[in-house]
């Protein structure tokens, strides 16, 4: 098991945003965590990385992550693409990619950048442009490409479709599928339940801070409650 989360809790003052979440991601899987706005998905993801104080336990590759600072995770192959993409707006596309390899000390960074350009021709076109001048979708591509620069084992994606036009959303999901096909394990947090479930192997449904449903993505897609609540199909 690559990632094992047990009894995850997040508090904001007196408010419990995440109430004892259990979650597993096995190597090679694409797992999605879906739920409505404010269900606590992003809080859970940030807490897993240690960006929020948390209760409960998180084990990554068999080792507990307790007390591990965030900046150590990329060296161990766990990389998060934060919500809102988090590209460095004043740095060029290429500088952003180079920054993604910060945790690495080997000399193949240049070759890896070339590899990313192969996968994302759009980024090659804009390599000398600052990231802030890219469109939202291009920024999301850059954020994913940058995360891949540290050669992750497990990629945590926080709402990659947020604020994008439908055509671009489809494109980003294609990219996620390709990245998964290359053998990167992915935990995807999404509001767009249908797309996420169609893409994923397994899924978790989160509602007001707790997991209410989980299982095979296909089964969830067919589930009546999921269809009513998240796929916009009215009760019959």
């Amino acid at each position: 098991m690559l990632l094992e989360v047990r009894g995850l809790e997040v508090h904001y003052g007196g408010i419990r945003a995440v109430k004892g979440v259990d979650l597993e991601v096995h190597a090679g899987e694409l797992v999605c965590l879906i739920g409505a706005n404010g269900a606590g998905k992003t809080s859970a993801l940030r807490a897993i990385c240690g960006l929020h104080a948390r209760g409960g336990s998180v084990r990554y590759a068999g080792e507990p992550l307790e007390g591990r600072p965030v900046f150590e995770l990329p060296r161990r192959g766990l990389v998060m693409v934060p919500e809102g993409r988090g590209v460095f707006p004043q740095l060029t596309v290429e500088e952003n990619l180079a920054m993604g390899a910060f945790a690495r000390t080997d000399a193949d960074v240049g070759a890896d950048i070339a590899l990313r350009y192969q996968a994302f021709p759009r980024l090659r076109e804009r390599r000398h442009q600052t990231a802030g001048t890219l469109s939202g979708g291009e920024q999301q591509m850059l954020a994913i490409a940058r995360a891949l620069m540290s050669r992750p084992k497990l990629l945590l994606l926080d709402e990659p479709s947020m604020g994008l036009a439908p055509l671009m959303v489809a494109k980003i999901f294609d990219i996620v599928r390709e990245v998964a096909a290359q053998g990167v394990t992915i935990l995807l947090v999404e509001q767009n339940a249908r797309l996420a479930l169609e893409l994923a192997d397994r899924g978790y449904v989160m509602e007001s801070g707790a997991i209410t449903l989980s299982g095979e993505a296909k089964a969830l897609l067919a589930d009546r409650k999921v269809r009513e609540a998240y796929l916009g199909e009215g009760a019959g």
Binding site: C49, L51, P69, V70, F71, E72, L73, P74, R75, V79, M80, V81, P82, G86, V87, F88, P89, Q90, L91, A98, M99, G100, F102, A103, R146, A147, S150
Partner: peptide
């Protein structure tokens, strides 16, 4: 380079493995 990243976006800098 690390300072540059910190200046631009601290959360992203940490996610890149910068202390």
């Amino acid at each position: 380079r690390a300072w540059e990243a910190v200046r631009e976006d601290e959360t992203a800098a940490r996610a890149m493995g910068i202390n």
